[in-house]
């Protein structure tokens, strides 16, 4: 059983994770044992956070599939939603 982390990653190919509950700006987000980063924004529960930098125009991947494209450069730890993807 996984130790509880603040995000869920549905597919290993995903470049976004989903917040299990609201994540405060600046909070440490643990992905795996030795992999963590800070949340650059507040992330509402159920919303997406960038697991890595996503350059403008490249794919946002969730469920291992393309769900949209970045409208601007998205930095690791950023909130990912309609303001920066389409």
């Amino acid at each position: 059983m996984n130790r509880k982390t603040s995000i869920i990653i549905i597919d290993p190919k995903d470049n976004v994770g989903v917040a299990r509950e609201r994540i405060e700006k600046g909070a440490e987000v643990t992905v795996r044992e030795a992999d963590s980063f800070s949340a650059l924004d507040e992330i509402p529960a159920g919303h997406k956070i960038a697991l890595k930098n996503i350059p403008a125009g490249s794919a946002v991947i969730k469920y291992g599939e393309i769900i949209g494209k970045a409208k601007e450069d998205i930095l690791q730890g950023s909130w990912v939603h309609t303001h920066n993807m389409m």
């Binding site: 989903v18 509402p44 529960a45 159920g46 919303h47 997406k48 946002v60 969730k62 469920y63 599939e65 393309i66 769900i67 949209g68 990912v80 939603h81 309609t82 993807m85 389409m86």
Partner: peptide
């Protein structure tokens, strides 16, 4: 759906077909 964090129709539908 959007308030809940769904950004695109693909994202919503992918959740459904799971």
């Amino acid at each position: 759906n959007m308030d809940g964090g769904m950004s695109t129709i693909q994202e919503k539908s992918l959740g459904c077909i799971m």
